[in-house]
């Protein structure tokens, strides 16, 4: 397993190589990439802030949950911080498993869990303004 928050550009192949085991028959990879528009506005670039020590520990927690739920062979997650230009990769999730169904399902699940729990924040910058994008607060019992 590998969990990382980094200011460096993200590349999928090293993460794919990391999660692929000899018993893996499938590797599912998700890339979150910077889009040039949001709610009708033309986005110039994004800036990500993170609480890195906590983000990596929350990533590990959601990955361990997924490993219990599906027969996976490995999981790796990276998120980038700082300024990202249009088209750059902000989030990489790679999941390996013996068969494809579990890899697809676990990867989808991990993307959803990531967005609701990992302490990373996105600021959209457009011409003449900027705003921190905040998801819905998550109820905790």
């Amino acid at each position: 397993m590998l969990f990382e928050v980094t200011a460096d550009p993200l590349h999928p192949q090293p993460l794919i190589d990391h999660v692929r085991k000899d018993e893996s028959g499938a590797v599912a990879v998700f890339l979150g990439v910077v889009r040039d528009n949001s709610r009708g506005r033309r986005v110039l670039h994004l800036e990500y802030d993170a609480y890195p020590e906590m983000a990596t520990s929350v990533m590990r927690g959601i990955a361990e949950d997924a490993m219990e739920r599906w027969p996976l062979t490995d999981v790796a997650i990276q998120h980038r911080t700082g300024r990202l230009e249009i088209g750059e990769t902000s989030l990489l999730i790679a999941v390996s498993s013996p068969h494809r169904a579990e890899a697809f399902a676990a990867c989808h699940h991990l993307v959803d869990r990531f967005k609701e729990s990992v302490p990373i924040w996105k600021k959209e910058v457009w011409e003449g303004g900027e705003v921190w994008i905040e998801g819905e607060p998550v109820e905790r019992s």
Binding site: V34, M54, F114, S117, K122, G135
Partner: peptide
């Protein structure tokens, strides 16, 4: 939880609603 008691030396983080990745994908 918000009622968690703090101890000397704790690191308290104020966490705004998170938005990692891109929720609109």
């Amino acid at each position: 939880n918000s009622d968690h008691s703090l101890r000397d030396g704790d690191e308290l983080a104020l966490i705004p609603p998170v938005s990692g990745g891109d929720r609109a994908v």
